[in-house]
Design a binder for these strands. Structure first.
Length: 171
DNA sequence: TAAGTGCGTCGTT
DNA sequence: AACGACGCACTTA
């Protein structure tokens, strides 16, 4: 079941060497991170005027963490996350993903076991696909048991790239 | 071996 | 009621 979601109140662009990411924030923290879109037009910020320091601080942390993560290093500090958009099951999965260290990978089955539902491995895959904060919540570190890539909502090229930069993918 | 098929399982739509 | 970002057992070639 879903929880009431605090609507994302602010969305900022984060330019990186890989393109412009979009980060959305609620008062609770970073609520969504989106990969660079094909046609990445300028993002109109409807929030001209006072942006709470709390949001700005969070965004600064996100920017720093993202730049680290994109070059395959472990961010020393992660921003506060707002994962309230997920169901309890999804949040449990996402929380588990945060335990996967840089340079390591788990299988979908391992994640399922970690949350005490070894049979729900397929549902875990779905939950990974619903991860609102890719890269920082490292769903890309989950592979199929046979070490195949599995899937990735933003495209397998991204998954492969992220893993390569962490040294978790050959070639 | 490699590649293909079938099915259990379970959260989500 | 149907569908997966799965995994495993079990064919075939």
């Amino acid at each position: 079941m879903k929880n009431s979601t605090n609507p994302a109140q602010y969305t900022f662009a984060i330019p990186t060497g890989d393109g412009q990411f979009l980060a959305s924030y609620s008062s609770q923290g970073l609520s969504a991170l989106r990969f660079p879109a094909e046609a990445n037009g300028s993002v109109a910020l409807s929030t001209m005027g006072g942006i709470p320091d709390q949001i700005l601080n969070c965004h600064a942390e996100t920017t720093a963490a993202l730049s680290m993560a994109l070059v395959g290093r472990a961010p020393p500090k992660l921003p506060r996350f707002d994962l309230s958009s997920g169901t309890q099951f999804q949040r449990e999965v996402w929380r588990t993903l945060l335990r996967i260290e840089r340079g390591r990978t788990w299988s979908y089955a391992q994640v399922a076991q970690a949350i005490g539902r070894p049979a729900a491995l397929r549902a875990v895959g779905r939950a990974c696909g619903a991860n609102p904060i890719p890269v920082l919540v490292p769903c890309h570190r989950v592979l199929a048991s046979n070490h195949a890539l599995g899937g990735f909502s933003a495209g397998l090229e991204w998954k492969r790239l992220l893993l390569k930069r962490e040294g978790s993918w050959p070639s």
